[in-house]
């Protein structure tokens, strides 16, 4: 198995609703991949399946050839789309928590990033703004020396200046042989840092192409391509 992350005929249903519909997808190491799709297209479901938070109804999802579980969590760093950290915790406790939990957690790196954003280790999460909380979560995720990063909407809730900071943080901290998957609908903001775009809609894989291939062959940005694809869809 050469693919870092592979979906084989992957299907997930919530009752009668098909969230992912027979997805076949292979993603390689050393790539930054945008998982793109409108709201409700299945992006979060796919990332949850990759983290073992959900189990497929059909097909399978493999990371380094393994089913998601304790083994894969050792090298997969996951940033969920929701605030999942308890509000009473302060940053210092969180750091200790992560260092204790993950062997690949790099404390110096985390402290450096917090410093640069002037986030105090003494701050309790409940005193932080929504955007700052998101930054703390991202710092925790990017401080792991993981080989797979699955980032669910890392820039969804922050202002444009912070978006730049977050994207810069991702670029600076991922190791070059790692796979980074960024799910978002803010395509224009992430486009320039992507190698590949995976576009899904209604649980189906629409396209999996490199960004430069889309620009070269379509003569337009991925953002414009995306808008066009979904304009067709609406008809």
């Amino acid at each position: 198995m050469s693919a870092k992350l592979a979906c084989l005929d992957l299907t997930k249903r919530y009752g009668g609703l098909v969230a992912l519909d027979h997805i076949d997808l292979e993603l390689a190491s050393g790539r930054i991949v945008g998982l793109l799709g409108p709201n409700g297209s299945g992006k979060t479901t796919l990332l949850k399946l990759a983290n073992g938070l959900l189990v497929p109804n059909g097909g399978e999802i493999l990371i380094d050839g393994l089913k998601p579980g304790i083994e894969t969590k050792k090298f997969v760093s996951y940033l969920p789309d929701a605030h999942y950290l308890p509000n009473w915790m302060d940053v210092k406790t969180l750091l200790a928590f992560f260092a204790d939990f993950y062997e690949d957690f790099d404390m110096a790196r985390a402290k450096d990033m917090l410093d640069r954003l002037a986030i105090s280790e003494k701050a309790t999460l409940k005193t932080l703004s929504r955007g700052t909380k998101e930054k703390v979560q991202l710092i925790l995720a990017m401080s792991r020396r993981a080989s797979v990063y699955l980032l669910d909407e890392p820039i969804g809730g922050v202002d444009p200046a912070s978006r730049d900071y977050i994207l810069e943080t991702i670029l600076r901290n991922y190791s070059e042989d790692a796979l980074v998957v960024i799910s978002t609908h803010l395509i224009a903001d992430v486009e320039r840092m992507l190698d590949e775009a995976v576009i899904i809609n209604n649980g189906k894989l629409i396209a999996h192409r490199t960004v430069d291939d889309i620009r070269m062959k379509e003569g337009k940005s991925v953002d414009e391509y995306f808008r066009e694809v979904f304009r067709c869809w609406a008809n």
Partner: peptide, 17 residues
């Protein structure tokens, strides 16, 4: 490459290319 990629705000693979 890595430094230039950061400055440009692009992926290191893109800068490599």
């Amino acid at each position: 490459v890595r430094e230039l990629a950061e400055e440009a705000g692009v992926n290191p693979n893109t800068m490599q290319r």
